[in-house]
């Protein structure tokens, strides 16, 4: 129950409050961006985080990563609606693995971009995705180890307007192809596990854009839950929000066990369910 409440706060309330800010600003699409506000600095991003972390993690202590987890992103985003983020875990520092990774973008209207849960024997040490960044901001990853300890690493990214700039370049196409999935697998580099890349066609609407005809805000519409498994064995699951870019894209390494197929199930905020399955052997391992 408590988890459910927390989740509701994380994903629904921030969206709603972002919308309220936008409405109050009289048509400014994204409440937190733009020249009316001073650009965020490392210090101001940290202050936002200080006010936020209790709501996300309660009073649990968050320690420095100590090399256990690392987050990388371009210092300056080429496209604020499509910022590549790379998270890696050092297995030597986390011998028992990592249970969950929470990705935070301090300045975004919905700062919790995603929470990833890693399957017990999934062996994930690297996870890459793409996010929207609304202003200069720290991107943070908080890794939870099986003992419940939280470890944080952060990287500062200069970007602007990732939520307010409509990412969809081809609106008709986006509607037609929604829900398509593609899975790619790559042989690992020497001594490393193979990698998998999951791509899902979805506009992941931010809820901060208006319908041209009705002038009403288009409701947020995004992939909320995602699970990836091999057979019945969970590899990776995600609870996501509007900060994940259009056409959500995840790439990660994993340990295969046996030859069971890869299964993917995604659910969006309208309750639409998208499923796919791919045989392991034809995926090129």
């Amino acid at each position: 129950m408590q988890k459910q409440d927390l989740r509701t706060w994380r994903f629904v309330l921030p969206v709603a409050s972002g919308l309220a800010v936008a409405l109050l600003a009289g048509g400014t699409i994204c409440g937190l961006s733009g020249p009316a506000m001073a650009q965020q600095t490392q210090a101001s991003s940290d202050r936002i985080w200080d006010g936020l972390k209790g709501d996300v993690f309660g009073d649990k202590a968050i320690q420095d990563d100590g090399g256990l987890v690392r987050i990388e992103a371009p210092k300056r985003a080429q496209d604020a609606a499509l910022v590549p983020v790379d998270i890696s875990i050092d297995p030597a520092k986390a011998p028992d693995g990592v249970k969950a990774l929470t990705l935070i973008i301090d300045v975004n209207p919905s700062p919790v971009a995603a929470t990833f849960r890693i399957g017990d024997d999934a062996g994930i040490t690297h996870l890459a995705t793409r996010v929207r960044v609304n202003d200069y901001s720290y991107l943070r990853v908080i890794a939870e180890t099986p003992d419940g300890a939280l470890h944080m690493n952060k990287v500062f990214v200069k970007a602007s307007g990732g939520c307010s700039a409509p990412a969809v370049k081809n609106m008709d196409e986006a509607q037609k192809t929604m829900g398509q999935m593609k899975l790619r697998e790559f042989a690992g580099e020497a001594g490393k596990e193979p990698e998998m890349q999951l791509m899902i066609r979805h506009p992941n609407n931010s809820g901060l854009q208006r319908d041209p005809l009705t002038q009403y805000f288009i409701p947020a519409h995004f992939i909320q839950d995602l699970s990836i498994s091999q057979g019945d064995r969970p590899i990776l699951s995600m609870e996501g929000g509007i900060s994940i870019s259009e056409d959500p894209n995840f790439r990660f390494d994993f340990k295969a066990h046996g030859n069971d197929e890869i299964r993917v199930k995604a659910t969006d905020t309208e309750g639409k369910v998208f499923q796919g399955h791919w045989p392991l052997e034809t995926a090129g391992l």
Partner: peptide, 10 residues
């Protein structure tokens, strides 16, 4: 409609 406000601001 989708981009106008962003253009004016940016």
């Amino acid at each position: 409609e989708a981009r106008g406000a962003f253009y004016l601001q940016n």
